[in-house]
Design a protein around this nucleic acid. Structure first.
Lengths: 140, 140
DNA sequence: CTTCTACATTGACATACGTCGATGTAGTAA
DNA sequence: TTACTACATCGACGTATGTCAATGTAGAAG
């Protein structure tokens, strides 16, 4: 690796007066990269229109469960593709799989999405993004 | 295109007794693909650890704004990469850009994330996934 | 046993994504 | 003007992602 980060606070600026760009100097990111990776994985699982429709379709059932053959038709996707997306949603914690006989029934994990929102609210500084229901509050 | 969807309800099953797989028959997905695409775009913008840390870093400033040179150092990313991620976050509606002099100051859009969660709650059937105690008292 | 069904997994492909170096574009300062 | 700074954009590269045809696996029915 020959990547040398720019490191603005370590550049020997010839004149100390014009380097006023960085004022408060946030420094190291408050959100640890480990937590960010976990969060990003969940968001990435939701970052596909077909997966969102899979979630919606499964949740639309009265028992909030569906097998694969229920999902290939409405989404107009092949069976391997649906299985792939379902696996991603299961790995992300949004769905659970239960085999009954020959069929695999997928059901939604009740608090998964709200927990994700709660994580977004509580994850250190990102919580500041969540308050202020209307954009007319923070004058400070 | 030679893709022929399996169409479970249209398969001529030789015996009508073992095709009990599809019970409630969710049918067409309740979440329209248009809304799903918009939602997926926003989730996709959040589906990267570096972009989440960019959001957190910007929000950590007392004025909730930062210029690019503030962000290349802490995230250990090149300046073009940071600009690219910031553009994605701006396009998704999570950040705004304001040019003051030579610098571009990025600030968070106050209600963007909570609006995304609200969309998740209200988007047709996906709201059933959210009915857990905490974060929103969304009355009808 | 064999055969069928429902689903998972594999392999392959095209596309999208993340990253960086190089270059372009404003703005500031002399 | 020239020179420098902060940032955006372009081009390229490697990798990840979405999709499907083909194949594998496990249960049910005969």
């Amino acid at each position: 690796m020959t990547t040398i980060p720019i490191s603005p606070s370590a550049m020997g600026d010839p004149a100390g007066d014009l380097s006023e760009c960085c004022g408060p100097t946030p420094g190291a990111p408050k959100l640890q990269s480990e937590s960010a990776t976990v969060l990003a994985t969940k968001f990435k699982a939701l970052g596909d229109a077909n997966r969102l429709m899979l979630l919606a379709t499964i949740a639309s059932g009265e028992s909030a469960e569906a097998c694969v053959c229920d999902l290939t038709g409405p989404l107009n996707l092949g069976q391997p593709t649906v299985s792939h997306h379902l696996k991603i949603l299961v790995d992300a914690g949004f769905l659970t799989r239960e085999k009954r006989g020959t069929w695999s029934y997928y059901s939604v994990v009740p608090g998964a999405l709200s927990a994700l929102c709660a994580d977004l609210c509580s994850e250190s500084v990102l919580g500041d993004l969540m308050r202020t229901p209307d954009p007319a509050e923070r004058n400070a």
